[in-house]
Design a protein around this nucleic acid. Structure first.
Lengths: 356, 356
DNA sequence: CTGTTAGCGCTTTCAT
DNA sequence: ATGAAAGCGCTAACAG
């Protein structure tokens, strides 16, 4: 038994396809009587419209292309989940791809998604040594397909975006660490060759400057995010030093566990031996080593992205000037039970340490 | 500038659409000369075929519908990632949805995906108190759309599937715990109202029987996976007992962190106070509390699912008898550094404890 | 080897 | 208020 088409429904209801289409889309005038008959026919035939045919004829689908580096990073899968739940309410379906931080792959993925006539693109753009697909993304947007960037702001990109205030985040975390008296600290983040890396490093440096602290070069690790090996090497090295850093600030998204593992296998306990702070979203981390985290509300953040998407998609042709939403992250202290923290090098500074 | 269609290419190359289509699909005979001209035209016009149009005319897309309970569960996002990378090589794109363990939602999602003429369905099916969509899934398969189930085997389902040998996994883990001398142990898993829950409980019971151990009812928690509250309540209760269990076996997929957190906030340290073992895939857990895990190779597992999918999709109309692939999981001891384990209630049994 | 011609299932003017 | 007809972009016989 083949699947019923609009034609079958029309025939069964004794009307034309156009009428069926009208009741389907609930637009145009449809007689009370005709509408009822059509509805009955649809019911009887178990009719359900072909999304593909609709898409072809409207030359626009209700699919949203989503590209993330790797879906299994908690930050991204959380975001996807929340976005999905929202977009679904508006009848959108998500096509999810993994770019693996490869510029070339990203480009191919975009092309492929475009061939599906996606209504919009939600992307955590690659932006590394080899640059970004900025020009291409801009072009796509200017062609009328909304593009919403997430988490990484490509310098000068002309697309909507939902980001995090990396500068402030890193500045405050660093300040907190220093205020606790730690001086022999290590810092790791994406290299300052693109926006997030720059902002983070700047925040770090500014905080250090404020405390008059100079962090030696060997304690600063700026890792290419495409490859996890250097980070591991660095951490192993760090752990083997005569005087390992007492605090580590990690701002490499998605590498928290890598860090924990490396430190762990190197015999450095967290947080007993090393005070570790990070930026990633993962409410599990705090319990098992992380001293504190600096993170946005994933729900707010993802919702913002989804809402922006909806707005753009529903708006029709005229894309307004790109909108940038910057989320401020919040410090999240994590110790609910007493643990022994590594002894600071200096006396703690007076700060608001009793914020719940 | 509108996007070039096959028509434009044909015109530019001075041939008919069919010829263009032929070189596109690389089938049928095409003259050397014509082929070259077409290729040049495609190049010049930046032509790229519309996946939607292809899909409509073939009435079958190259999209694979994927339904998981919640993508952010490490097990599922890992699987998705691996499957995606494989399917992509074959030109398939994945439409990912979250069922949230809701039977009704799952059904709706399936319907929606079907309207996209998906080439196949990859699903971690809901199977709880309210039953499953077994009949519907069977029907879909019999209609010609391959269905590959993952991780949860619905009793009697007539679809391909890739599963885990839950019985053996749970049996061996329990045996190991008992062999270490723990007697006051707690067990938690999905309720035995469907396959995995049954298998796990059976494995647990068999192992206990073998050791002549009776676990009191209050130490056995069979949680509905749709709701996380009962588990939390149970854990808090457990933690407050005068004599809390010394070992906990957790076989609820995706709840490891919930457990860790609840125990944590209840003041029970893992593994110092409680020996905790689980089944979930997450190579981060072992380092921070979990005493050991029992898991499949996610790569093998996911690959198997993807391969099965490809096979079915490429095969054409005639779907062979459903194939079931059962993966044996492997015990993974996790302590790379010395920690103090809770003191067993009995003397450890002689077992192979020096593996690796 | 290549062109012609129907569709695929639905939307959308344009008449009536 | 409703029907007829022309696409949307591509595939797949069927003729040549």
């Amino acid at each position: 038994m083949k699947k019923a088409t609009i034609r079958d429904v029309a025939k069964a209801a004794g009307v034309s396809q156009s009428t069926v289409s009208r009741v389907l889309n609930n637009n145009g005038y449809v007689g009370e009587d005709a509408r009822r008959r059509v509805e009955e026919a649809m019911e009887a035939l178990h009719y359900s419209p072909s999304a593909i045919a609709v898409c072809l004829s409207k030359s626009r689908s209700r699919m949203i292309g989503v590209i993330v580096p790797q879906i299994f990073a908690p930050f991204f899968s959380r975001m996807y989940y929340i976005a999905d739940r929202i977009m679904e309410r508006y009848g959108y379906r998500l096509l999810l791809c993994n770019s693996d931080e490869s510029l070339k792959r990203e480009k191919e993925l975009i092309d492929d998604l475009l061939s599906y006539k996606i209504a919009a693109l939600l992307i955590v753009p690659v932006d590394g040594d080899e640059g970004s697909n900025k020009a291409y993304l801009d072009q796509i947007r200017s062609t009328g397909t909304p593009v919403v960037c997430v988490d990484r702001e490509i310098e000068g990109i002309h697309c909507d975006g939902v980001y995090i205030d990396n500068y402030t985040a890193c500045y405050e975390v660093t300040k907190d660490v220093l205020a606790r008296g730690y001086r022999n600290i290590a810092y790791m983040a994406d290299p300052p060759i693109y926006r997030p890396g720059c902002d983070r490093l700047r925040g770090f440096r500014d905080a250090c400057k404020e405390f008059g602290v100079t962090v030696p070069q060997e304690n600063i690790f700026l890792a290419p995010i495409e490859d996890t090996k250097p980070l591991n090497a660095f951490l192993h090295d760090v752990a083997r030093r005569d005087v390992p850093p007492k605090a580590i600030i990690n701002f490499v998204r998605g590498w928290d566990y890598t860090m924990l593992q490396a430190l762990h296998s190197a015999g450095l306990r967290v947080p007993e031996d090393v005070y570790l702070t990070g930026l990633d979203d993962d409410n599990t981390l705090p319990n098992f080593g992380y001293s504190m985290q600096y993170l946005p509300s994933m729900i707010d953040f993802s919702e913002a992205a989804a809402k922006l998407l909806i707005e753009r998609v529903e708006a029709g042709n005229a894309l307004p000037e790109p909108e940038r939403r910057i989320f401020t992250t919040h410090m999240k202290p994590i110790f609910e039970r007493k643990v022994t923290l590594p002894k600071p090098d200096a006396a703690p500074t007076e700060t608001d340490e009793k914020e719940k």
